[in-house]
Design a protein around this nucleic acid. Structure first.
Lengths: 266, 266
DNA sequence: CAGAGATCTTCCGTTCACCGGAAGCCCTGG
DNA sequence: CCAGGGCTTCCGGTGAACGGAAGATCTCTG
């Protein structure tokens, strides 16, 4: 029995999927190969996308993602939306540390990086904006995973975990322990799990329902000594973003307020 | 004669077009209304987009642009690609001024903003990342337009120019003069053309072919006095970005270097 | 609490737009 | 000069897309 052919929409979207961080400029034939579409079909779809502005042709005739798609992507509430409110706080954090400052959300089993500020003197990390890394191996990922839906956690815990260095969390059991710790402490410190030379200090960002929707981190060289020294700054920034998002638990600063005022109905 | 019906692809893309800065979360019916598609058709297309991850549903069942599309958009060379190389220089500029720092490219007759850094104390401007403003009315726009293809310039010059304030360039004749001046000086100062209280200082960014592909600017309150004082910093940053992009005219700093060392092959 | 109105979802027969092989065009390199 | 790879145009058969109709939820409103 022949499986039902993919719909036109699915084919069109698969053309977009052909583009990746490692291949941002593709020839028509490359697109056809990557998507598995007949050349003629790819030609037609690519033509329509180009006419609309979703793809552009560079000087050499190759195709690249167009400004139109970038603009549409900029409307994603979980993308630029979040970034926009977080940005001032991230800038403060960057200015105070001059290290890598990152903002990420969870998608599937990965941490997707929405923003990365890094000065020239900061330790080199191989994340890029729009890129993704397995959640279990990054500071922000641990924070996000620790507050993810139960089924997501179980799914990650039951799968083999990719190792990057000998400090990457190796097993589900260890990961489970790490996540519990993150929940208890309210932050994560990830030491050398992606690259041995880098330590990440991460904290959660809450939205107006107090759900954890993002995480921020500062990444420093491990020889810099005490990563804990950065903790207050990271947590303060995370709290600031949460407040800007309307998180009830991040309202104002805790203080000697015992009487709350309600406006009684009627 | 009935006009040929729009292709499936065009319909799918029109669904994406339904989203705008003013409407990032839409119900199915709203999408159907905005696109002019029958409800059933919209339902099917939206369903496919959602299954793929291009759209997401929020708690209230409304649709929003999904992370998947944001990721794809992040691959646009003229979007995040440019931004990525420009970012360190923009940060320097921001840190030095603490005013609004902007990065923009030309699309059609508009300046599209790729990045905007703004502190809490900076003058409020109503640009946002991913947003656009008419080229003739903004500092970055004037710079971009001044170096745009001849036909683009003529097209803008022949159309009526939207006025924002009484200082907005009103006529094609004046615009032509302004563009010539921008080319001669190598920068643009736009005083109160969008909002009376803001002055913009803008400079061009060149790529490896020395074509002007972007522009940066700093926007300050007009009562801040001398906008010209910012000029060196803005031009230096623009030059830095150009050099990072491989612009030949921005190579190294001019200086008493007469001997260059090459490693001879073999 | 009924009933009007709005939005969303499923179902299904008809039709016409999509499909992709074939063929020709344009390069570049040998 | 031809070979090889990539791109574009053409066109007839067919099965996937289309959208009206009807039912399923919710939300107001009197």
């Amino acid at each position: 029995m022949p499986s039902p052919p993919p719909s036109v929409s699915a084919r069109l979207l698969s053309v977009l999927e052909a583009f990746s961080p490692g291949g941002t400029r593709l020839t028509l034939s490359e697109i056809a190969r990557r998507t598995g579409l007949p050349l003629t079909t790819a030609h037609r779809l690519v033509g329509e996308l180009t006419a609309w502005g979703g793809l552009e042709r560079d000087g050499a005739g190759r195709y690249q993602i167009g400004l139109r798609l970038w603009e549409i992507g900029a409307l994603a509430p979980r993308g630029l939306g979040l970034r926009e409110t977080a940005m001032p706080f991230l800038e403060d954090l960057y200015e105070a540390t001059h290290q890598n400052v990152q903002l990420a959300v969870l998608d599937g089993h990965d941490a997707v990086f929405l923003e990365r500020l890094s000065g020239r003197e900061a330790v080199h990390v191989f994340t890029r904006v729009g890129g993704r890394l397995p959640a279990h191996a990054t500071g922000v990922g641990l924070v996000l995973l620790a507050h993810a839906p139960h089924e997501t956690q179980e799914a990650v815990l039951s799968l083999p975990l990719k190792r990057f260095t000998n400090r990457t969390i190796p097993s589900g059991a260890e990961l489970r322990r790490a996540l519990a710790e993150v929940r208890r402490q309210g932050f994560a410190i990830s030491d050398g799990q992606i690259e041995l030379i880098a330590v990440s200090v991460a904290a959660p960002v809450h939205d107006h329902d107090d759900a954890v929707v993002a995480a921020i981190s500062v990444v420093v060289p491990s020889e810099n000594g005490d990563a804990y020294a950065l903790l207050p700054a990271v947590r303060a920034a995370a709290r600031g973003i949460s407040r800007a998002l309307g998180s009830p638990s991040a309202r104002r600063l805790p203080g000697p307020v015992h009487r709350e005022t309600f406006s009684a109905p009627g």
